[in-house]
Each structure stands twice: as C-alpha cells, then as structure tokens.
Amino acid sequence: MHNIFINLYKYRELIAALTWKNIVIRYKQAYLGILWAVLKPIMLMLVFTLVKSFVGIETGGLPYPLITFAALIPWVFFQESVSEGVNSVTSNASLIKKIYFPREVFPLTAMVTKLVELLISFAILAGMMIYYQVMPTVQAVWIPAFVLYTMIVALTISFFGAAMNVYYRDIGQAIPIALSLLMYGSPVIYPLSLVQQKLVIEQAAGAWSNDLYFLYTLNPLVGIIDGFQSALIRATQPDFDVIYPGLILILTILPFSYWFFKRAESWFADVI
C-alpha cells in the first residue's frame, strides 16, 4: 500500500510532466484557457441559485450562492477526478503498449491535473467571500485535510474503475450516470442540516430513520462537503460524526482497490 507514496515520489517528475501536458493540451487552442475549468462550478452555482429562489432552502442565514459554491468545489473536484481517473488508463493506451512505468501514475496524474483546477476554484471562492464579507477563520486549516481525503476517495474509485474499464468499457459509460446520481445523494444542492432535520429530528422515515441517516453518511462526500462548508463559511469545527462512517468505509476499500489495480496492471498491455 505504501508503494503508492513511494511511486508518487519516485515518479514525481513524470506525474508533473503528464499533468502539465494534460492541462496544456486541453486548453492550448482555447481563448479562455484554463478558465473553462472553473466555468462548470460557476454555472452549476448559478443554476442552483435560480432553482433555490423557487423552492426555498433553509441555509441558516448564510448566502446560498456562497454555501453552494463551497459545496461545489469539492464535489466538482471529486467528480472530475473520478471520471478522468477511470478513463486515464484506456486513454493512454499508446503509452501503455510501449513503455513501462507503474500504471497508477495515470489515475494519480488525472487527479493532480484536477488539483490545479481546484486551486483556481479556490481563488474564485475567495473573491465571493470578499463580496459577501464572510471571513475565513482558523477553522480553514481543515481544508487541506479535506482535499487530501477527497483525493483518497477519488483514487479508491479510480483504481478499481480504471482497471475494470480496460476489460469492460461499460464502466467508462456508467461512471457519468453514477456520478450524477451521487450528486443528489450528497449535500450539494441542499445543506446537510436539511437531511439531519428530516431524519434525525423529525424521524420522517419512522423506525428506519436512523439507519437511513447512517446509510447516507456512508457516502464520504457527505462528510467532505459538510466539512468544507463548516471550515470555510460557517467557521465551525467540522462535524466528525458525519465524517467517520464514510472515512472508515473508504479506508477499508482503498487497499483492495489498489490491490485489484496492481493485479490487473500486468495484463493491461495485452488487453487494452
């Protein structure tokens, strides 16, 4: 397992070069360049804000665009990392057939590429925070930890998905659908407090309420998104009760996912 980190260090130049290539190629002939990368969260934020004006969502007195954008930052980072990561092996078929280096470089590169785009999103969030006069507090130190956690979640899915995608291209087709469903299962459009209100306090699902809530928190994105909002906008300690179920689940799956990837790796060149 610690091989990941050794390889990450050993192949840092390769990962850096491939990341740089991904970014350069993607935006080379585009006039707006890398700004396209942040257009997605901004557009989603605008749409959600529009929807919110019809349905009315309780945000605890905080500006809705800000709270949504704070949720969209980790969500879009996660979503893009996973969809790039799952396709990263198949889209580099020509390299895989010709040169050997540890194949986990590809999902890792996909993620690092998205990390660069994430930084730009943060710059925009900073601008919004100034506009709404919401100042970050010392709680913001949690943010790097949440980014790392998001990367681990994305890697866990990418390793398994990328390896499967080599054999069954169905995975690459299924991932966008699964991800868009998962967005509704994560507190992106609505705040987590709404779910807590319904399930924990009002017990809306009767005897099943607490189990349902536990199931909901198994989704690691729930803890991540709520944590992001807490640490940046609400200036409170992240709610760890929401984080643990997902975190434990992911840390249990990650070794298996990595093991599966390494096992499948030796046949990539033959099958791809």
Partner: peptide, 16 residues
C-alpha cells in the same frame, strides 16, 4: 498538440 521543445521534456519524463 505540443511543440517540439515541449515534447522533448515530456518524452524525457516518460522515458525516465
């Protein structure tokens, strides 16, 4: 998509 010079760096990294 990359220039010759950029490709030299990229290929170098790929070849280790």
């Amino acid at each position: 998509e990359l220039t010759g010079r950029e490709n030299i760096y990229l290929n170098g990294a790929i070849l280790g």
